[in-house]
Computed example of a mutant assay.
Amino acid sequence: MKKHLNTLFVTTQGAYLSKEGETVVVKVEKEVRLRVPVHTLGGIVCFGNVGCSPYLMGFCAEKSVCISFLSEHGRFLARVQGPVSGNVLLRREQYRRADDPKFSADMARHILTGKIANCRTVLQRALRDHEEKIDAENLRQTVSHLGRCLTALGRGNSLDNLRGIEGDAAHRYFSVFSELILMQKDAFPFDERNRRPPLDPVNCLLSFAYTLLVHDIRSALESVGLDPSVGYLHRDRPGRPGLALDLMEEFRPFIVDRLVLSLINLRKVQEKGFKKSESGAVLMYDETRRTLLVSYQERKQEEILHPFLGEKITVGLLFHIQAMLLARFLRGDLDGYPPFIYK
């Protein structure tokens, strides 16, 4: 079993990372702010004006610690990693299957089953825990509609058909998402999902957290030898990690959506932690970003019972386990890919 390791997020502008022995050293204005042993890290994510020494990059590549560079507001720029691991036969099988329309549709069906089922569970939990505070009838109708979408997935025989079902399910899910915001409703209005750029604080939080999720899933896929760029639901596009986006679908509701709702409802983030640019895009201030990063890391440390393995694991290991199950499916060791469905 892969050990659950932390991700080091560096958000302080002007920070510089270097190597000292077996540790990663973070300096700001030539003053040491942090020392982290490299064996405790699974990855490093640098936001904005953050520098790294060439020696550290080579050291991290040798130790299989990926370094990712994002813009200050979370847009992916580049990553530094060591030699790709994994059996070339596994990747060849991945590529062959991606060229098969029927297999791609079957794989997309597994992925979307996990996503829609988990969206449904998020709404069902809200009904169970907060029925008196929300428009319960509207949520019940949406839960029933998502159930019909799950049934429709079984009849879908093409990627276009499955994407249509997924689009309908996502629209209905996000149409009631504001009902799950129980506190600070005036400060955090939500009408619809929007991105590039996000136009309100809720979408800003969701988009940023989805970026973190893609980073972790991409690393998990590479760790088992799969190519994160070649997906089944998300088809090939230069610069897009299609398979990472595929696998992310089943984790969106369970990890990111619930995390964002908790941050708002527990008042860990507030309206003053956001700003609107001249273009209309809503951005986070540094303190809000740090709060989200810390909460995301804490979420990954929580324990759950994996529905397929029947074992207790940390949330952060889910990405590696699902990547491993996908690799086993492609090798022919499993009859199907078991998506993560949280109960």
Results as ranks from 00 to 15, higher is better:
residue 291 T to A: 07
residue 270 Q to A: 13
residue 29 E to W: 11
residue 60 C to T: 11
residue 106 D to S: 03
residue 202 V to W: 06
residue 63 K to G: 02
residue 38 V to N: 03
residue 30 K to Y: 06
residue 250 E to Y: 05
residue 275 K to C: 06
residue 39 H to T: 07
residue 337 Y to K: 00
residue 101 P to R: 00
residue 306 H to T: 09
residue 102 K to N: 07
residue 247 L to Y: 03
residue 233 L to P: 00
residue 17 L to D: 10
residue 248 M to A: 12
residue 226 L to T: 01
residue 188 F to C: 02
residue 333 D to F: 03
residue 263 L to G: 00
residue 343 K to S: 09
residue 286 D to T: 09
residue 292 L to W: 11
residue 30 K to D: 15
residue 127 L to D: 04
residue 123 L to F: 10
residue 60 C to I: 02
residue 142 T to K: 12
residue 106 D to Y: 03
residue 79 R to M: 13
residue 90 L to S: 12
residue 200 D to Y: 07
residue 186 D to P: 02
residue 199 L to Q: 13
residue 45 V to K: 02
residue 11 T to M: 14
residue 190 F to L: 08
residue 290 R to Q: 15
residue 290 R to K: 11
residue 114 G to T: 02
residue 269 V to E: 08
residue 269 V to G: 05
residue 300 K to I: 07
residue 128 R to H: 11
residue 263 L to R: 00
residue 316 G to C: 04
residue 299 R to S: 15
residue 333 D to N: 10
residue 124 Q to T: 08
residue 48 G to F: 13
residue 82 G to V: 03
residue 241 P to Y: 05
residue 172 R to W: 11
residue 24 V to K: 00
residue 45 V to C: 03
residue 217 I to G: 00
residue 90 L to A: 01
residue 128 R to E: 15
residue 41 L to A: 00
residue 141 Q to L: 05
